[in-house]
C-alpha cells in the first residue's frame, strides 16, 4: 500500500445512532489522522458524548462503521478496543471510588500488562505497575495525592486522575470528553499545558466547550450540530465559517468571534 501513511488512524463512516425519536448521531463521517489533535465542538446535546461512546464501544451504533488502525472495530466490545489502543476520559467522572488514586491508575496499567488471572501475588507490590502508575500521576500533577482515596479528591483532581488512568493504558488514540469541565482557571491552564505536551506523543480527539483551549490546541476542528458534521477544517477556517457562526448564535458566538 503506497498511501498507507495517509491512511487515517480512525475512520468513521456514515455512523447513525438514534434514541427513540432523536437522532443523536446523524450519518456522521469523520477521519482522524495519526498525530493530529482533532477537536470536536458543538452546542449542548449535539451528540459529542454519544459519538465518543460509540468510538470506544460503550454504545453500539444503529448503522455505519468505525475503523481503527485499519481494523473494523464497529462490533468490538469496549475492553477489546482498549487493548487495541483506544482510551477515553469520561465527561462525567467515572473512576473507582473505593480505590486510591494510585490504585486507579495501576489497575489500568495492569490491564495492559499480560493477563490478570493471577490469584496469589500481591498486585500492589508489582513494582513496574506501581512505577507506571506513579509516572502517569506525576504527568498530571497528582504524585503527592497518590494514596488518597478517590472519594476524597477534589473535582479538579478527579479530572486529572481521569486523564492519568487513560494515559496508563498507553493509548494510540486518546478521546477526551470535556477534560476542562468544571475546572478553575489555574487548573484549566495546567490542563492545556499538559495537552500541549501530550499531543506530541499521542493522537487526540478533544471534545471541549472551552473555545480558547480548542483554538489554541487543535490541528483541525469538527463542528457537530444535531448529530451532523456541519464543518471540519483547520481552526482559522472554522473561525470564519458562516454556518458555524450561525450555529453558535448566542453567548458562544461571541467567544468564537473573539478568539
Amino acid at each position: 500500500m503506497v498511501d498507507s501513511l495517509a491512511d487515517p488512524l480512525l475512520r468513521v463512516e456514515k455512523l447513525v445512532r438514534r434514541f427513540g425519536g432523536i437522532t443523536a448521531t446523524d450519518n456522521l463521517s469523520l477521519d482522524v489522522m495519526s498525530g493530529e489533535l482533532h477537536a470536536i465542538i458543538g452546542p449542548n446535546g449535539a451528540g459529542k458524548t454519544t459519538l465518543i461512546s460509540q468510538l470506544t464501544g460503550q454504545l453500539a451504533p444503529n448503522s455505519g462503521t468505525i475503523h481503527f488502525a485499519g481494523r473494523d472495530v464497529t462490533r468490538q466490545p469496549a475492553y477489546r478496543r482498549s487493548r487495541l489502543g483506544l482510551a477515553r476520559s469520561f465527561q462525567i467522572t467515572s473512576l473507582l471510588p473505593d480505590f486510591s488514586a494510585i490504585d486507579n491508575v495501576a489497575i489500568a496499567a495492569q490491564a495492559h500488562d499480560g493477563h490478570s488471572f493471577r490469584f496469589w501475588g500481591n498486585a500492589r507490590k508489582e513494582i513496574h505497575l506501581r512505577d507506571a502508575a506513579r509516572s502517569a500521576l506525576t504527568r498530571v500533577g497528582l504524585e503527592a495525592r497518590a494514596d488518597v482515596p478517590v472519594s476524597e479528591l477534589s473535582h479538579g483532581e478527579q479530572r486529572e486522575l481521569e486523564l492519568a488512568v487513560a494515559l496508563a493504558t498507553k493509548p494510540q488514540l486518546l478521546l477526551l470528553d470535556e477534560p476542562m469541565a468544571g475546572l478553575g482557571v489555574t487548573e484549566s491552564a495546567r490542563m492545556v499545558a499538559l495537552l500541549k505536551e501530550l499531543r506530541r506523543e499521542v493522537t487526540i480527539v478533544l471534545v471541549e466547550h472551552d473555545m480558547e483551549a480548542v483554538f489554541a490546541l487543535a490541528d483541525r476542528i469538527t463542528v457537530l450540530v444535531y448529530g451532523r458534521v456541519i464543518a471540519c477544517d483547520v481552526p482559522d477556517a472554522i473561525r470564519n465559517n458562516e454556518e458555524v457562526k450561525r450555529a453558535y448564535l448566542g453567548d458562544q458566538h461571541v467567544v468564537v468571534a473573539h478568539v
Binding site: T56, G57, Q58, P77, A78, Y79, R80, S82, R83, A87, R88, F90, S94, L95, L96, P97, D98, F99, I107, A108, A111, H112, S116, V165, A168, T169
Partner: peptide
C-alpha cells in the same frame, strides 16, 4: 474494580 465501576473497568480493557 468491577464491583466499584464496571463501565470504567471495561473501558480500561477488562472483560
Amino acid at each position: 474494580g468491577v464491583r466499584s465501576n464496571e463501565q470504567r473497568m471495561q473501558a480500561i480493557g477488562f472483560h
